[in-house]
Design a protein around this nucleic acid. Structure first.
Length: 876
RNA sequence: GCGGACGUGGCGAAACUGGUAGACGCAAGAGACUUAAAAUCUCUCAGCCUCGGCUAUGCGGGUUCGAGCCCCGCCGUCCGCACCA
């Protein structure tokens, strides 16, 4: 019987409509089933979806559909991370309002996502630029202010003088603004900060409990938070050298054990002591100005020479009143780490050694390799940084550095300076507070008011939201909110006098730091419904790109803690399971050869293979095209593929199946036309097998004279069912795909026989069950095809609503197993024997094999190893 | 510089807790069907030879009855952080 080819263009919209009408994916908060929250990182509405989105959302959808079939109440929402600079850049370039641009993009991308057939609960959709959403974010901000989690302080920022805005470090390229190309300045600006450092210890410690997170991400966060244990040492300033009112220098060190190797102090150019010292030393002031100007860009740091200048100030060694050390201002000391001051121990640190050699400072070795000779051990050009034994260190001599650390700490804790101890153990973090002020229009307004009399006052909650005005101009760079004729003028909520609104908006990372909580009750007036949030959270499976390993994921962990402190939640970790998927990459093509050829789109290139070599030509002109390296898809290299085109020509199921096949999901996948065609062939093959045998299977027609072993079919189906379930549970989609191919290969012959009327009643019923299993298993990945097959078999209801069947334990084990039989570790024979045969029986049967007898040549084996259910090894 | 991950056929990859290396897919080759093409189906597909074997998981050692997997030392690729005291 000839059947039609499967037509996704007709089929897919039909089933999407059916799911929508059945409201299958609209989730209720009160549902007795166990909950499962699966979330993919929501997209920025840049214009159109790209294949990276397809991969991300296909994976999440497989998990969502699988968990639904497993009997969970699944929450699988979607929204838009909709504030941000691209909207303003588009406004400046194309004279379109950021709001219009953003909502138009959302409309386009929503349609695109819907064409993928994702099982999303669209009833909970929101965009972070919706007033409803940023209103609640402003409420959170004010709660955080009340809980002491917000501060306003002055900090150094990258300032683009042309665009008149702060730039993030990532937006500064070779010291220039990424958009304007202007030389970036370091400016001291007063900014709003979230006190993420309050949670530094917990954010670091709690990583240990995240056992469903990739080790790599946890490690990156741990390093980013950068916990270190050390000692705060207060060095007394030598009389007669100290500026008025100063009598100590506070230094942080992780190596107090090397205190007798100290030969100088180095302080930052921004250190208060440096500033005082510079007051009557013009050459020092000039040097400090130089240092400040140098900036902190990577390029500047790499090439910068280590430089310093003596302040004239001297400190006294804590353990020797007669020993004084000079205090230098040095260009490599950072004000915002530790205390902005260090002691230099040249023998134990390469940078300190270079500095000491340059300025003629003493170099005293204090740690020597175990077994060395203290009398002759010297450091000249290379510092010794490994473990060893203390030398030249008076009462520390002979100790290990670790002991010496404790000894120094204990002693300094007992000595007083002023009314404080001279030494204090301290845990230091690299993590800084999170600066959230942006001099931008398209973001969430910071709900604060500046009053001359009352200071900075929060906007009363009753007056929220602080709405973004629509009537703004983008004809000039800078923040339009600053230039708006009326918006910033407001009366002080405390005294009623004329005051000024904060015109900075929040970093867009704030928006994405709590959206997952909002999804649990997006209709609430408060930021969350704590009951709903606590029931749904943590997100059971979060899926997104590795590029968010630190920023977004760390901020969200902070926000969850902060929101809990403010009573909106009651948990600390937002994401129980995290999965970071790889990118979609593609070959690149360029005209001619060499690095100057123009990039060409894959769609314009024809590739042919001859003699094992692939050659590419431009379709339009026949010009030769050079096939370049495989790279991340980017507009500039034109190696992008539009999901719309793929869905239009092959259907969403093909696209989904392709991105889930072959490559492990955490690795990059190479997009190839051949691979997509392969995926599409499988779609058609499943349809052909099912539709051609559908009549026979649906009516259970059988011919007694059938061929084939029905048990083989049943076993294959149940084994596949078991492993596909396990694989999807582990997000090993590529393996699940392989198992489904295997089952299809097994079913192919028997199904063809059945379609031709050559199947027994047993076989027909085994096939019917196997095909039902196949349909349920492909459904999470290719939901439309599954429905179409199910309908062809006259099944009841929708596959999307069917339960995942339980595999039959009796069918997944074989009664007989085949042991490989090795002789001296090399396989020489097979032994098929009953599964429950005991070791001795297996050993005897193995030794009786002809191949084994031949190899032993009459001698008895030295040893026989039988690993039950696995292998036999005969040691001759 | 510091920290981490990874190296398996022409390609993407499998391989359970140390137990038959290469499942599954792509590409390629041969054949069948067809006037022809597409589609589909069947077979071959790590390398080498003497068709029974031998050699093969980046390289060199080690542990073990047995190593892709564990240990030591190299080489290569990728990623993160980077004046962090």
């Amino acid at each position: 019987m000839a059947t039609e080819r499967y037509n996704p263009r007709a089929s897919e919209p039909k089933w999407q409509k059916a799911w929508g009408e059945a409201k299958l994916f609209e989730t209720e908060n009160d549902d007795p089933r166990p909950k499962y929250y699966v979330l993919e990182m929501f997209p920025y509405p840049s214009g159109r979806i790209h294949v990276g989105h397809v991969r991300n959302y296909a994976m999440g959808d497989v998990v969502a559909r699988f968990r639904r079939a497993m009997g969970y109440n699944v929450l699988h929402p979607m929204g838009w991370d909709a504030f941000g600079m691209p909207a303003e850049n588009a406004a400046m370039k194309n004279k379109v309002h950021p709001k219009d641009w953003t909502y138009q993009n959302i409309a386009t991308m929503r349609t695109q996502l819907k064409s993928m057939g994702l099982s999303l609960d669209w009833s909970r959709e929101f965009a972070t630029c919706d007033v409803d959403y940023y209103h609640r974010q402003q409420m959170l901000f004010i709660d955080f202010v009340e809980k002491g989690l917000v501060t306003r302080k002055s900090s150094k920022v990258n300032w683009d003088p042309e665009d008149m805005t702060v730039l993030a470090n990532e937006q500064v390229i070779d010291g220039r603004g990424w958009r304007s190309g202007a030389l970036v300045e370091q400016r001291e600006l007063t900014q709003w900060f979230f006190k993420i450092t309050d949670f530094a210890q917990d954010l670091s410690d709690a990583l240990d409990g995240l056992d469903e997170w990739p080790e790599k991400v946890k490690l990156m966060q741990r390093n980013w938070i950068g916990r270190s244990e050390g000692l705060l040492i207060r060095w007394p300033l030598a009389a007669g050298t100290a500026p008025a009112g100063e009598n100590e220098l506070e230094v942080y060190t992780t190596r107090p054990d090397t205190i007798f190797g100290a030969s100088f102090m180095a302080i930052s150019a921004d250190h208060p002591l440096a500033k005082k010292a510079a007051e009557n030393k013009p050459e020092l002031a000039a040097f400090m100005e130089d240092v400040r100007r140098m900036g902190t860009s990577v390029a500047a740091l790499e090439t910068a020479e280590k430089k310093g200048m003596d302040t004239g100030i001297r400190v006294v060694h804590p353990f020797d009143p007669s020993w004084t050390l000079p205090v230098y201002v040095a260009n490599f000391v950072l004000m915002d780490y530790g205390t902005g001051a260090i002691f230099g121990c040249p023998s134990g640190d390469q940078r300190d050694l270079d500095f000491a050699n340059k300025y003629g400072l003493p170099v005293v070795p204090v740690v020597m390799p175990e077994g060395g000779d203290a009398a002759t051990f010297q450091i000249t050009e290379e510092a010794y940084t490994d473990d060893g034994v203390m030398i030249n260190s008076r009462f520390l001599d002979g100790m290990k550095p670790e002991q010496a650390f404790n000894d120094v700490a204990n002693r300094l804790e007992q000595i007083s300076i002023g009314n404080r101890p001279m030494g204090e153990r301290k845990v230091q973090f690299r993590l800084r507070d999170w600066g959230i002020s942006r001099q931008r229009y398209w973001g969430c307004p910071i709900p604060m008011i500046h009053c001359e009399d009352c200071g900075v006052v929060p906007v009363p909650k009753a007056d929220l939201p602080v709405r973004l005005p629509d009537d703004v101009e983008f004809d000039r760079p800078g923040n339009p909110l600053d230039r708006h004729p009326t918006w910033r003028h407001v009366n002080c909520p405390q005294c009623g006098k004329a005051a000024r609104r904060e015109t900075d908006t929040m970093d867009t990372f704030v928006d994405s730091s709590w959206y997952f909580a909002r999804f649990t009750a997006p209709w609430e007036n408060e930021p969350t419904d704590p009951k709903a949030a606590n029931e749904w959270l943590p997100v059971d499976q979060y899926i997104g790109g590795i590029e968010h390993a630190i920023l977004h994921l760390l901020y969200s962990r902070f926000f969850t803690r902060a929101m809990s402190k403010a009573g909106h939640l009651d948990l600390s970790e937002p994401f129980k399971g995290l999965f970071t998927q790889g990118m979609v990459v593609h070959e690149t093509y360029r005209l001619g050869s060499g690095p100057n050829g123009e990039w060409v789109s894959p769609g314009d290139v024809k590739i042919e293979e001859a003699d094992g070599k692939r050659r590419a030509t431009l379709i339009a002109t026949g010009e030769p095209v050079e096939i370049g390296s495989i790279e991340k898809m980017s507009k500039s290299k034109k190696n992008v593929v539009d999901p719309d085109d793929i869905i239009a020509s092959y259907g969403a199921d093909t696209a989904r199946w392709f991105v889930l096949s072959d490559s492990p999901p955490e690795r990059d996948v190479v997009w190839t036309e051949a691979g997509v065609e392969g995926a599409h062939r499988f779609v058609q093959r499943v349809w052909r097998l099912v539709s051609e045998s559908a009549d026979v299977l649906a009516k259970a027609e059988a011919r007694a004279a059938g061929e084939g072993d029905a048990a083989v079919v049943s076993k294959a189906a149940h084994k596949a069912l078991k492993s596909v379930g396990e694989d999807i549970g582990k997000l090993a989609f590529n393996k699940a795909v392989a198992r489904i191919y295997e089952l299809t290969n097994t079913l192919q012959g028997p199904l063809a026989d059945a379609a031709a009327g050559k199947a027994s009643a047993d076989m027909v019923s085994a096939l019917r069950e196997a095909v039902d299993i196949l349909i349920v298993m492909i459904a999470p990945m290719m939901p439309h095809l599954a429905e179409e097959c199910w309908a062809a078999l006259q099944g009841d209801g929708l596959v999307a609503d069917r339960a995942w069947p339980k595999f039959d334990a009796a069918l997944v084990v074989d009664n007989e197993i085949t042991y490989p039989v090795q002789i001296n570790g090399k396989k020489r024979a097979d032994l098929t024997i009953a599964r429950d045969a005991d070791q001795l029986t297996v050993e005897k049967a193995a030794l009786a094999l002809e191949a084994v007898q031949k190899a032993l040549d009459g001698k008895s084996p030295r040893k026989v190893i039988v690993v039950p259910q696995r292998i036999v090894n005969v040691v001759a």
